[in-house]
Nucleic acid binder design. Sequence first.
DNA 1: CGCAGGTTTGAGAGGAGTCAAGGGTTGTGG
DNA 2: CCACAACCCTTGACTCCTCTCAAACCTGCG
Lengths: 242, 242
Amino acid sequence: MQLTNQFLAKLSGHTRLNAAELGALLGLRGTIVTTRGGCDLVRRDTESDYCCLVLEGLIARVDQTDDGKRQIGAFYVPGDMPDIQALLLPQAVTALQATIDSRILRIPRSALRDLVRSYPAIGEALWRETVGDARIASEWILNIGQRQARARVAHLICEIAHRVVEARGQQFGFSLPVTQTQLGEATGISTVHVNRVLGTLANSVRLSKNRAEIFDWAELQEAGGFDATYLACGTPQRLALE
Amino acid sequence: MQLTNQFLAKLSGHTRLNAAELGALLGLRGTIVTTRGGCDLVRRDTESDYCCLVLEGLIARVDQTDDGKRQIGAFYVPGDMPDIQALLLPQAVTALQATIDSRILRIPRSALRDLVRSYPAIGEALWRETVGDARIASEWILNIGQRQARARVAHLICEIAHRVVEARGQQFGFSLPVTQTQLGEATGISTVHVNRVLGTLANSVRLSKNRAEIFDWAELQEAGGFDATYLACGTPQRLALE
DNA sequence: CGCAGGTTTGAGAGGAGTCAAGGGTTGTGG
DNA sequence: CCACAACCCTTGACTCCTCTCAAACCTGCG
């Protein structure tokens, strides 16, 4: 099985890739695996020979304190590659977990490494992906550190909406396969309080059956203090050609 | 003025660089600027033609919510390059601010770009640096999201100690030029509460005059639930040669 | 049908924020 | 050399956001 167009589109969105490079990427082959919700894709302190590309479902990066408290540090939606950084630092310090049954394309790390070696621009594109992830992490720190519970939840929903659906009107819906507990783990809020906070947001958004329905996009963004700038990459760049 | 050995040592710590590459890095030239504490090094939404290397002092990456609450997202100590990622995404979405008078080496971005183009391993080393930063950010999310105030502060002090001093006995001291307000901005705690929490940590650590004195390193790590694994890079790697 | 996992709601406790004011320290300028 | 301003640290009192504990309800699935 080969790469998704989603992934290629994402890379092309920030890095100018020529036909040869796109061809090389399309030449990548991997095997599809299905991971059940709640199961680990990558465990902490292990080294895997594969890179994951999310095809379907939702993957969470989950960290833990020594007394067992869980923190979700990132969500990866279809088209994302959650463990690019393992190409550089193979020892995982954080686990990857499916929040719901997910389809994953496992690509041999060696194949990706060869590509990066042969086509610097592909390395550049992947590097830019990791930098984009870091920006999102930075925004999460701001979100968790400075906003109140209600705003945190709203902000998180806005971010995922922004990443998952291209055309956003005032009202729309999308797949959001997370429990309220996971929402809490991602925002540093207890499950109980997530539930109450969602109640106060019911005018703008409602969650049910693994979906989010947005009723008032403007109000939701307002509630979360959401500004999508940090998700933008500007026009496609190319270090190697400048 | 040329690069510091600190920076080269950091790169060499995770990436195997040969003589030519080290020589090329040593050939980099920049100008030293001094930034006063509290002043911006890089402003939000601007594009700078330089990359910064911290020589002396302390730099904070600071984010803000739309209602003006400040969150410090990272600290950069001497030997760090806070804005490597600007090589890939030049538009800064976050500001860099000196917490105290700092000496910075400003290197023309074009020079660094040329180096990355000519020596892929240098790009690889810088990429690994950005990945390391991302790991730290991930740990901050865990810290702010799941730990109580006392542990957050202890954890942060442990991290900086770990990054700044090589030989750590049971007792030692190091330069920590941050105010309690900044400590709060980095941990998502109000200034007043930082002060109280520091009181409860007085057996293990005391701050004064821009320095931290550790009296009981084991107890401080315990209080912060600190485990340095996330700061380690393992043995030096080399993508290009594997 | 019954269980497991997720959602909801209530009540009480507590960690941390806010407001306010006093005390130190540092640096600048008269 | 002293005075003053600015900034930081410290402490108290009160408030409130959020957590914890607990129980009930719902829903999908075996």
